[in-house]
């Protein structure tokens, strides 16, 4: 099933027809936003457009197709395969991953219970972020991460939307498959927010390689421990670390002989050192490579790579 078919399946009849009749190249489509009684807005080729009833792209919102309450409800039925109850855990987190690895972000009336968010009802805002794999985007980085014993513990530092997960995904894929730079190894991925593998019914929708095991929707600290005990990975990959528990689990994993690759939000190493927990982790030399991404250029652009002594080894 191609990208277009996967996507239009989640829309009610009228919206489905609009996308089918449009001449959009779905590979360049980044985002579709549906808001109740508001026009559909799409992000195409890094630009925002409205889409009209006959599938034309418009800069003027007056001609944009307006989404009704009923269409919103039907979209949720299709997104959840007619079973909203089966996605309660995902809805609590604010998103559902659909076939193809596309992420459907949700907002509406939040229902709370004693422990936190119980459910989101009257879902009235939907943001569909289309999954984009960049096969080969780690080609330039990988040689700097490989040592005699295999892959070095690496921390990818990046501002939001600069491509840290995309880069991590490609590193995982290459380490798992193996190539001229690195021998194939078993990789364990703890995918707390389903962003790395974008699993749909347990199956990764993104290519993570042939020797990769994925713990989907599992808290990072818990998942690292589980993987070490059960799947014996040589490399563990996690996205967006930051809590004390994450750091402790990474430290445990590292002591067990596993290599770790993680990502973290930040602009630079100095920026991260302002946070006490992260500073301690850096000082303990838990990571030997720091890959800093640049948020100013296209997704996945490397600003520089540092070693454990904070020396620049690539710029």
């Amino acid at each position: 099933m191609d990208r277009k078919e996967q996507l239009v399946k989640i829309f009610p009849r009228n919206i489905k027809e609009i996308f089918l009749s449009s001449s959009l190249d779905f590979k360049r489509l980044q985002e579709i936003r549906l808001r109740i009684n508001r026009p559909i807005i799409i992000n195409y080729n890094n630009k925002e457009y409205y889409i009209t009833k006959d599938g034309q792209l418009e800069k003027n919102g007056d001609r944009g197709y307006i989404v009704s309450r009923n269409e919103m409800r039907e979209t949720m039925e299709f997104v959840s395969s007619y079973s909203l109850y089966a996605y309660e855990e995902e809805i609590k987190q604010g998103f559902i991953t659909i076939q193809g690895g596309h992420r459907v972000g949700l907002a509406g009336k939040v229902v709370l219970d004693g422990q936190g968010i119980k459910f989101i009802k009257y879902i009235s805002f939907i943001n569909i972020r289309l999954s984009h794999e960049k096969i080969g985007c780690a080609n330039n980085v990988l040689p700097f991460l490989v040592g005699k014993e295999g892959i070095k513990n690496t921390l990818i530092i990046s501002p939001p939307r600069a491509g840290k997960t995309t880069l991590l995904r490609d590193i995982v894929r290459q380490c798992s498959n193996g190539n001229d730079v690195i021998k194939g190894m078993s990789v364990g991925v703890v995918d707390e927010r389903s962003e790395i593998g974008a699993c749909y019914m347990g199956e990764p929708q993104n290519d993570l390689g042939i020797r990769t095991d994925v713990l989907d929707s599992c808290p990072k600290a818990m998942g690292i421990m589980m993987l070490i005990r059960t799947m014996a990975p040589e490399l563990i990959a996690v996205d967006e670390i930051g809590t004390k528990e994450d750091i402790e689990a990474i430290s445990y994993g590292s002591n067990c002989g596993c290599s770790i690759i993680a990502t973290i939000h930040g602009n630079s190493l100095e920026d991260l050192e302002k946070k006490p927990i992260i500073k301690e982790m850096i000082e303990k030399k838990l990571f030997s490579r720091f890959v800093i991404l640049s948020g100013n250029h296209s997704v996945g652009t490397i600003s520089h790579i540092l070693d454990e002594h904070k020396n620049i080894i690539y710029q």
Partner: peptide, 10 residues
């Protein structure tokens, strides 16, 4: 009635 309800309601 089915299809768009939460777990409890379903």
């Amino acid at each position: 009635q089915l299809g768009y309800l939460d777990y409890e309601m379903e």
